[in-house]
Design a protein around this nucleic acid. Structure first.
Lengths: 145, 145
DNA sequence: TATCTATTGAGAATGAATATCAAATGCAAT
DNA sequence: ATTGCATTTGATATTCATTCTCAATAGATA
């Protein structure tokens, strides 16, 4: 069993919940196709192969995946909540283009370390962070108005 | 004229827009009472003294204030967009306690500078950023479960 | 004052996210 | 396999923050 599936299954078991068919489909799709995603886009991909998985179930599964530590809530874009993988990925920050909506992922050890240090100073137990920077990407800044 | 009012007025003028009565009321209320706020709470405060300012106008004014650089969008909390002052306040990040909901503001020159540098490398025109770190604050971590 | 826009309030509309509920499913113990 | 029972599901209705519509109004300028 793939690691993420095992982890999710274990998590569900501790809560007295079940790794059902739809939940497996959702989990697999997320970890096969998506790094960043929103429920709407995920729904479209899932529907191609599984016409019987409903939007409601996807919405219901998100908080479980977040609580399990496999994904986390990320930027909010075009009025939609976005999510991203945690399992298997380093912390990183996002440059979000306000023109085209594209997301550029950037890693920064300096920022990671600075945050850890700041948290220590404040005696704050740091779980995770979201850093979203807004602006205009190179491609869009070259386009004319 | 107070500085924030002057700045907003100037901004509006460059866009061919007007500093109207309702816009002044909104601006004043924000800079009198609120550091962090959402439209709903702002509406309630404004309504105490000005029954004729509508929700729609407040919603419409927010993007203008953001574009003028006086405020920025901040955390999203309880399904509501939140805003905070920029004018008169340095960039800062937030430690959000998941137990008590309290927000600790922290400033970090290192992070500010690192972001500017990263943006330059990616040829990204940086408008602003939001850094929200989740975890448990000192007070809550001392409480027993 | 007349004219031309920008703006407003009120209420309707939108749309992402959540709640409801009867039918279906997973699982454990027979 | 079969039963029993709590969990889960799909479909749909509902919620609620935010945006849109539109006729009426206000601001600036000449």
């Amino acid at each position: 069993m793939e690691e993420h599936k095992q982890l999710f299954s274990d998590f569900l078991k501790t809560k007295g919940l079940k790794l059902t068919g739809p939940r497996q489909i959702i989990l697999n799709t997320i970890f096969t196709y998506h790094r960043h995603f929103n429920v709407d886009a995920l729904y479209d991909v899932i529907r191609k192969d599984h016409q019987n998985v409903s939007r409601a179930t996807i919405y219901r599964t998100m908080p479980l995946l977040v609580e399990s530590g496999l994904i986390k809530q990320s930027l909010r874009c075009q009025s939609k909540d976005h999510y991203e993988h945690i399992h298997g990925h380093d912390d990183h920050l996002h440059f979000l283009c306000i023109k085209c909506g594209n997301i550029i992922e950037v890693k920064s050890k300096v920022i990671d370390e600075t945050l850890v240090q700041l948290a220590e100073e404040k005696k704050f137990i740091l779980n995770d962070y979201n850093l979203g920077a807004k602006g205009v990407c190179e491609a869009c800044s070259k386009k004319k108005e």
